[in-house]
Design a protein around this nucleic acid. Structure first.
Length: 209
DNA sequence: ACATTAAGTGATT
DNA sequence: AATCACTTAATGT
């Protein structure tokens, strides 16, 4: 199966037997950009491990407002999903594909078993929790203590880093939604950044210098 | 040429 | 920093 090839990504991290089990129990899932993987009130019975692409994890409040929590990249597992699986609670968050993405879906049933049997799985799970936790702290810092202009610039740098490209193809509107602010504010702050010579602005495109 | 959508701007809260 | 109301610019048909 194709899963085989993708698993090589974890060669260094997973012990051989664990990889065998992943092969046996996991299923490969491909989604297109924009696809919703987990909607806010779903209960989760599979945990995704990302192979390629980028997933976006958002928190949603009662009336539709969304906050970006963090991005998942290749090799990341969704700690939120694990949490949700274990507690059996409603997700309370939304996951969607930022780009075309591939992932391995691990059924909830085997996870318990693996935790007992495989030290490398234990390490992987804890590491995932830890990584996500740190990113969350980052997001909280940014929301609580940073002004919009800092948040925006930070967002742009993050984007640049994770996509490996200086070009960000998003509208001001879309950025505003992710940062939970208005388009007008984003436009104005971007203008300021442009005047400082940090970015160049085009239609639906921003270049970070 | 016209309609639509993205971005820029001044004024107000 | 948000919202409104409006303008200007780029793009699609």
């Amino acid at each position: 199966m194709l899963l085989d090839v993708h698993l090589n990504l974890f060669e260094s991290r997973f012990e051989p037997q664990l990889r065998k089990e992943v092969l046996l129990n996991g299923r490969l899932k491909k989604v297109n950009a924009g696809a919703v993987l987990i909607s806010t009130n779903a209960t989760v019975k599979e945990v995704p491990i990302l192979i390629s692409g980028v997933l976006k994890v958002l928190r949603q409040d009662d009336k539709g407002h969304e906050v970006l929590l963090y991005y998942l990249e290749s090799g990341d597992a969704c700690a939120m999903s694990m949490n949700c699986c274990i507690s059996g609670q409603e997700s309370g968050f939304k996951v969607l594909a930022e780009e075309d993405s591939e992932m391995i879906m691990i059924p909830l049933l085997v996870m318990d078993d693996w935790l007992r049997k495989f030290p490398s799985w234990r390490r992987f799970v804890f590491q995932s929790y830890n990584d996500r936790f740190l990113e969350l702290m980052h997001s909280i810092d940014s929301m609580a203590f940073m002004k919009m202009d800092e948040r925006l610039f930070n967002y742009l740098l993050d984007k640049k880093q994770s996509s490996g490209s200086y070009i960000i193809t998003k509208t001001h509107q879309e950025i505003a939604e992710e940062l939970n602010t208005s388009r007008v504010v984003v436009s104005r702050l971007l203008k300021q950044l442009e005047q400082k010579g940090l970015v160049e602005l085009y239609r639906q495109r921003i270049e970070v210098l």
